[in-house]
Amino acid sequence: MSVLDQLNGSGIYLICGGIVLFIAIVCVVFLVRAWKAGKALGMDTVRMKRAITSSATFSLLPSVGILLGVLALSGSLGIPWPWLRLSVIGALHYETQVADAAAEQLGIRLGQDPMTTQAFATIALLMSACIMWGMILTTLFNKKYLKKLQGKDPAAKKIGGFGDLAMVAMFIGMVSAYLGSYIGGFVSGNGRFTFSGSWTPLLVAAVSALAMAGFTWLSEKKHWDWLDNFSIAGSMLLGMTAAVLVGH
């Protein structure tokens, strides 16, 4: 039985499905409590229903986009784990990058080298650990933080200044490191400045970036706003298709 077969085993489906089910129950509990609280406050039930309906329709397309993310990760991590990660807490760009970093620490290349069971367990642990801060912060500080904000200007205004710019800069730095490695890999991968390294990652990144540019153009200029929901996953799938076409 291959490692991928093991990763798609019923036991793993059961573990991941159990956690997804737990989160679904939590959502239902929060939904019912909020509905009852709204009624007790005298809120119009028509408006509350409208909020629910609009949120459901709003989430439908992005959810299909997230499903494409499960598809993208399923080739290296099996189906159940990406299903859990993208149903709960995760986001496609985060999961892929952390999985790759964990694989790197284990001396394997995600999707290229054969996956081992220990590599999978380590990757899964790192994926869970790196994104837990939001939950930890809400658990520790939510009550105090929200209390502090009451009657004051939203803190977002104070943090807004450099916080947003720092986040953009951080992602630019992260992307630069990866693109730099693809350029360096092609130029010096088989000996310094021989220009004989693998060019597939560069091609895939370029196709993916071009596809993203196309999606953004359609969304911004043609006002196909719904396309935004598929832009990252769609661009990735087109980039990956380019790799299949060149066969590397």
Partner: peptide, 18 residues
Amino acid sequence: PAFANVVPALFGAMAYKY
């Protein structure tokens, strides 16, 4: 080859975005 290039595909899209 598609699954071997998930990461470059992600960073290509993110590069344009950021």
